[in-house]
Design a protein around this nucleic acid. Structure first.
Length: 572
DNA sequence: GCCGTTTTCGGCCCGACTGTTTTCAGTCG
């Protein structure tokens, strides 16, 4: 079983938690957490780097010791240190850290004083009234613990960006109307356009006597209030989503925006630069001694540490600060750069709208082109097209193109890659299409090298243009299939094939990290919506967010090209 | 445990809110 970066990161996270409960040196704890983050945001598998004898200590936050530990994990799948820690204090203990109000210190006390090892034990002790007797605990804490343990997974984990969007926008609009409110921004990972968000961080600037904090807590979607102060409050919505509000004066808005947009790692890195220049940076501003020297805008904050403005989507401490310093930040793609959508379905298969309706929807977005790419015959549940029905649809599209103005339809297909690497329709019909999108919808469980070879074999077909949703993952539902993505990218580049970034909110396939690799490798990316009805074409905004997180510029993306240029690129 | 034009030791980012305290530790972001 190959060991992936996520597996290594999980082990380091677990060690960080356990060490913290053991009250180890906090900087040692941080070192493990940093290493987890570094490993999980690498473009390449650590296992591959080791196989190639690369020096892991060149990675940020990885020294001799951790490099050795990574090697051990890759070779054995585990780590003696983790096993020791788990044997010492129990591996289940870290699940208690998820309980609201419990951190490492209190978990350690619960374990030491009451012998509690897991959630069950904690419930029992709390119900017996034993927890309140511990020093540092009390009646209220005990009550809160029981409430939180009793809640059925409410709001736990992250939700899709698209699921958070309606709440975020309506909350923002509501707060904007409150008396005295000047500006409202939903910051945090929402502003960084992460594919999932854990909570919403809303930032407000307002006049001194604005009732915004009261209004925030009184919002109709609020189920309960976790905390409420003068400048900061936290509530939970009926949906389970946690929302923080932070109120600041206008003169601090930029510093606060920077602070609450994160990521945490990016902020730490920026503050470190500040410290080295004798500056203190917090959410109120940039300070030289007692004197505030910046804070009204984010640009000001960056300028004080000699950096150009860094777009929110890049703020992950994945090299953006070094790039900024070297004036090498990419000019990120925007929605306005997109000239068309190259993956869409109609009611001929599992879409909901007619070709005309899809064309109309694309025209309303000012697109130059839309590719109609229904499923092929193997996908029987979607009523996939055989050659006859496809030819019929091609005829319809030709006729429609005569009629339509302002938009061109491309004749296409989303053809299945069969288990042997052949395509689900004969070349005799693929040849007559404008565009061939290819994807895997079966045999997800092949071994990694078999899956990789299956797909590369398919790419050998000269009509293969785009590999759709390349990893097959569904957020929260299905793991990506085993595949060597780097090999796929190189094979695609060699063959003039492009990789899709699928913008369906639960796909978001490729990931930000994979997109950055694609850019480095130089393989073209197509941002598509895989729309199954007209309004789905608007999912493009999610793909754009992901592409920006992957450092992509308009030039890196194929469907920013004019129709004429696109046609040339599609000829292999 | 990492790191280094303040280098091989001694640092390592910053503030708000709550509950338990009687001046603050723990948690959280």
């Amino acid at each position: 079983m190959p060991v992936h970066n996520v597996d290594i990161a999980r082990i380091f996270e677990q060690i960080g938690d356990l060490l913290e409960i053991e009250d180890a040196n906090p900087f040692r704890v941080r070192a493990y957490r940093n290493a987890a983050r570094t490993v999980s945001s690498m473009g390449r598998e650590a296992a591959d780097l080791i196989a190639e004898n690369e020096d892991l200590t060149s990675l940020a936050g990885i020294g001799k010791d951790l490099a050795g530990k990574i090697k051990t994990i890759v070779e054995t799948g585990t780590l003696p240190l983790l096993e020791e820690l788990e044997k010492g204090i129990g591996g289940e203990l870290t699940t208690l850290l998820d309980v609201e109000g419990l951190g490492p210190k209190r978990v350690a006390i619960l374990h030491k004083e009451l012998g509690i090892n897991d959630r069950k034990g904690l419930i029992k002790a709390a119900e017996a009234g034993k927890v309140r007797e511990l020093s540092g605990f009390g009646r209220k804490t005990e009550q809160k613990i029981l409430e939180d343990l009793g809640r059925v997974k409410e709001g736990r984990g992250r939700i899709l960006l698209a699921e958070a969007e309606p709440s975020a926008e309506s909350y923002r609009d509501y707060l904007k109307k409150v008396e005295g409110v000047k500006e409202v921004t939903v910051a945090g990972s929402y502003r960084r356009r992460r594919e999932t968000v854990g909570d919403l961080d809303i930032l407000v600037s307002c006049t001194k006597n604005s009732p915004v904090m009261e209004k925030f807590a009184a919002y109709e979607e609020v189920a309960r209030i976790i905390s409420k102060g003068d400048t900061r409050s936290t509530v939970v919505l009926h949906s389970g989503l946690h929302v923080d509000l932070r109120v600041l004066p206008e003169a601090s808005y930029g510093a606060a925006l920077h602070y609450f947009t994160g990521s945490k790692a990016h902020n730490i890195a920026v503050r470190k630069i500040g410290v080295s220049g004798g500056l203190k940076i917090n959410e109120y501003g940039v300070y030289k001694g007692k004197k505030k020297v910046a804070g009204a805008t984010e640009r000001e904050v960056y300028a004080k540490v000699d950096l150009p403005y860094i777009e929110p989507e890049l703020r992950e401490d994945r090299g953006e600060i070094e790039a900024a310093r070297n004036n090498a930040l990419p000019e990120l793609i925007t929605l306005a750069d997109i000239k068309g959508d190259l993956h869409s379905h109609t009611n001929a298969t599992d879409g909901k709208n007619t070709i005309e309706e899809m064309a109309q929807a694309a025209k309303e977005l000012d697109y130059e082109y839309l590719a109609v790419t229904d499923h092929s015959r193997r996908v029987t549940v979607a009523n996939g097209l055989d050659e006859g029905r496809l030819r019929e649809q091609m005829g319809k599209i030709d006729a429609l193109n005569e009629k339509l103005s302002g938009i061109s339809l491309l004749k296409g297909i989303e053809v299945d890659i069969l288990s042997d690497g052949k395509l689900d329709l004969p070349d005799s019909v693929l040849r007559d299409l404008d565009i061939v999108v290819c994807s895997v919808h079966s045999k997800f469980n092949l071994a990694g090298d078999e899956q990789t070879e299956r797909i590369i074999r398919a790419m050998d077909n000269k009509y293969f243009n785009i590999l759709a949703h390349p990893s097959g993952r569904m957020l929260g539902k299905r793991q990506p299939y085993e595949v060597d993505m780097e090999r796929l990218m190189r094979a695609a580049k060699e063959r003039g094939v492009f990789l899709e970034l699928n913008s369906q909110p639960e796909r978001m396939d490729l990931t930000d990290i994979q997109l950055k690799s694609a850019k480095e490798i130089g393989v073209g990316v197509v941002i598509s919506t895989d729309a199954h009805w007209g309004t789905n074409l608007n999912y493009m905004r999610f793909g754009i967010g992901q592409a920006r997180r992957g450092w992509l510029a308009a030039d890196d993306v194929v469907n920013t090209r004019s129709l004429a240029e696109l046609r040339r690129l599609l000829k292999r």
